[in-house]
Design a protein around this nucleic acid. Structure first.
Lengths: 207, 207
DNA sequence: GATTTCGTCAGACAAGCTGTTTTTTGCCGG
DNA sequence: CCGGCAAAAAACAGCTTGTCTGACGAAATC
């Protein structure tokens, strides 16, 4: 039956949003402080000073929680800066600036992104659809950039637009970043210049 | 107390090896048939037609089982071919052939390797030390190759030996392969030539 | 042939995890 | 002053890993 009385939430809704945020921050914190360790709902609840059942009422499931975390990162993590960097008029500069911006964004949230991407690879449903949506956006963006590089005559001879899209996708991915950043202990800036140069030499005609 | 009688195993050891192999094959099969799904010891036991407790007596733990699976792949998966391909006299050909061999090996065991690598990234102890050992070997090999490319004057101006090692490491890793193979639905050969060309253009002076 | 040894099985068990449900506790809002 | 809702608390089912027990049978030794 419908509510017999209407409710204009003010303080209550605000409080609810705060607990929602506390939970998200707790997951984030847990992933940063103890990466490469299983994140249990119980520990998250303790860290957020919230009952475990509250997490389920707010996010529905474990997957929903990580999905929300991904969305949260998407909105606050600086993804938009990256998009605008790629979309500047000069496609070749867009390539460089896009990779650089991407790398810095990855570095800022490295542990959390590593967990999200690895979980998504092991079990597609474990993190909801966020990771796939995020990657789909990058796919689109890199295909566009490849097209624009071609239109501006920046592509090397013997490279098709499709191939350019593939290589851009490879060089702008989180895995490429993390392989160098974590796997080879390089600084953020070193990774950025290394990736940008590699992509440019692989794709573009010599300047 | 020590056994009071010595034991030279013949048939028994052979039978034990067979059950060990049945279990390893079962894990492999399970990972291939149902990737992106949790592999439980119970299902492996059923598939191998073995008691669950037997897996623990043979491999010690879940981590031990996956560790053994990694070792098994290391020995039978064609890793040696890749090493010899890299070590041929002409370093530049070694680069091309190494990447090609690598890619084909990755493709042959894609699902299993994906599971192993992702598990290792989420929890370092989950698969024992095999993945790390495997990657350490590749690190060594790629650093050597970078040095030899330099010695033979094949490196582009402005690329240090260290940088070459980093980029070789990036282009020969499983993630680079899988990003293109799975993430972009490319054929094995397409991935191989794409990666080989990208690496060569990023590293080497124009032919 | 008798006996020891060892691989395997079957099952019980504790502990931890997810996810659901039910009951209670406060406190905001009218 | 209550009605309604966020949240807590607790119990529950079901799955998982990992340990331990006792038993069985067949190979290896004597």
């Amino acid at each position: 039956m419908p509510p017999t009385r209407k409710y204009e939430q003010r303080l209550r809704a605000k409080a609810a949003d705060q607990t929602r945020r506390r939970i998200l921050d707790a997951v984030y914190q847990r992933l940063v402080e103890a990466p490469s360790e299983q994140v249990s709902m119980d520990k998250v609840a303790q860290l957020a000073e919230v009952s475990r059942s509250t997490i389920y009422t707010v996010f529905g499931s474990r997957a929903g929680l990580f999905d929300a975390l991904g969305m949260d990162l998407l909105h606050r993590g600086g993804f938009t800066d990256m998009v605008t960097a790629v979309l500047q008029p000069d496609a070749r500069r867009g390539l460089r600036d896009g990779i650089t911006g991407n790398v810095h964004m990855y570095a800022a949230h490295r542990d959390v992104l590593r967990a999200l991407f690895s979980m998504a690879q092991l079990d597609a449903d474990a993190v909801g659809g966020t990771v796939r949506r995020l990657e789909d956006g990058r796919t689109q963006g890199m295909n566009d950039l490849a097209q624009r590089l071609h239109d501006q005559g920046a592509l090397r001879d013997g490279i098709t637009i499709d191939q350019a899209g593939h290589l851009l996708w490879l060089h702008t991915g989180f895995d490429a970043f993390d392989l160098l950043f974590t796997g080879r202990s390089l600084s953020t800036d070193t990774v950025a210049t290394l990736l940008a140069h590699a992509a440019e030499h692989a794709l573009c005609r010599p300047a």
